[in-house]
Design a protein around this nucleic acid. Structure first.
Length: 203
DNA sequence: TGCAAACCATAAC
DNA sequence: GTTATGGTTTGCA
C-alpha cells in the first residue's frame, strides 16, 4: 500500500497543507500555523492508511499548494486537482458536488442545497463540517438561510476572510443548475452587509 | 427576539 | 439495529 504524502507550505503568513495519495487529494486545509494546518489534514485521512509528513514539497505538491493559496486569495481558478471522493457516501458526494458549483462571488444556504439535492439542512451542515477538502470544495460559501455566517471548521474568522476576498460586486441573486435541479445563489456582499449590521452597527 | 420542535444523513456504539 | 450529533430551519408566543 502506498504512503499518503503530506506537504505544507507557507504563503503570506498562512500555512497550507495537503495530503496526496497516488495523484489524488485525500485532504487539504490551511491555518495560521503549520501545526494546525497539518492536524486539520491528518484528521481527514482514513485512520488505517499510513502517512508521512514531508518538509520539502515536490514540484507537483507545490503546485497543488499554490492552487490552495489562489483559492484562499479569492481568485477564480479552475481546479485540476482530483479529489479522493470514491470512498465517501453517495449523498456526501452529491452535497460536495453541489457546493463545488457555487460560483466565486456568491453564497447559498444549507437549506437550499438540501432542497436541490434532497435531504435536510442539518445533514448538509454535517457534511460541510466534515469537508476534507477545504478550501477546494468551497464550503465557506454556504451560510444560514438569513445570510448570517453559520459555522466554519477552521474558524469563523477564516470563513469571513475567504468571503471578503471573493467579493465581485454582484448585486442580484441568480440560479445555477445541478442535475436538473436549480439552486439559488446570492452575492457574497449580502452576507458581509449582514455581518456588519449584526456586529458593528446595531442601533 | 427567543425558544422548541422538526429535520435527516452519518458515524459511533 | 439503535442512538447521538450537529456549520439548520421554521413556526409560534
Amino acid at each position: 500500500m502506498k504512503l499518503i504524502e503530506v506537504y505544507t507550505q507557507l504563503f503570506n503568513g498562512i500555512w497550507f497543507a495537503i495530503a496526496i495519495n497516488n495523484q489524488y487529494v485525500e485532504a487539504s486545509s490551511f491555518g495560521k500555523n503549520q501545526q494546525t494546518a497539518i492536524i486539520n489534514v491528518l484528521i481527514n485521512i482514513p485512520f488505517e492508511l499510513p502517512f508521512q509528513i514531508f518538509h520539502e514539497p515536490t514540484i507537483t505538491a507545490k503546485q497543488a499548494l499554490m492552487h490552495l493559496k489562489c483559492i484562499y486569495d479569492g481568485k477564480d481558478v479552475e481546479s485540476n486537482l482530483s479529489l479522493a471522493t470514491a470512498r465517501l457516501p453517495t449523498y456526501t458526494k452529491k452535497v460536495l458536488k453541489a457546493t463545488s458549483s457555487i460560483p466565486v462571488g456568491y453564497v447559498t444556504s444549507y437549506g437550499l442545497i438540501a432542497k436541490a439535492v434532497g435531504g435536510g439542512p442539518r445533514a448538509v451542515g454535517n457534511i460541510m463540517a466534515s469537508n476534507p477538502f477545504a478550501p477546494i470544495v468551497p464550503c465557506h460559501r454556504v451560510v444560514r438561510s438569513d445570510l448570517s455566517l453559520g459555522g466554519y471548521g477552521l474558524g469563523l474568522e477564516a470563513k469571513m476572510e475567504l468571503l471578503k476576498r471573493e467579493k465581485r460586486g454582484f448585486t442580484s441573486s441568480r440560479e445555477i443548475t445541478i442535475n436538473s435541479a436549480s439552486l439559488a445563489v446570492f452575492p457574497v456582499e449580502h452576507v458581509l452587509r449582514n455581518f456588519t449590521t449584526n456586529f458593528l452597527g446595531k442601533s
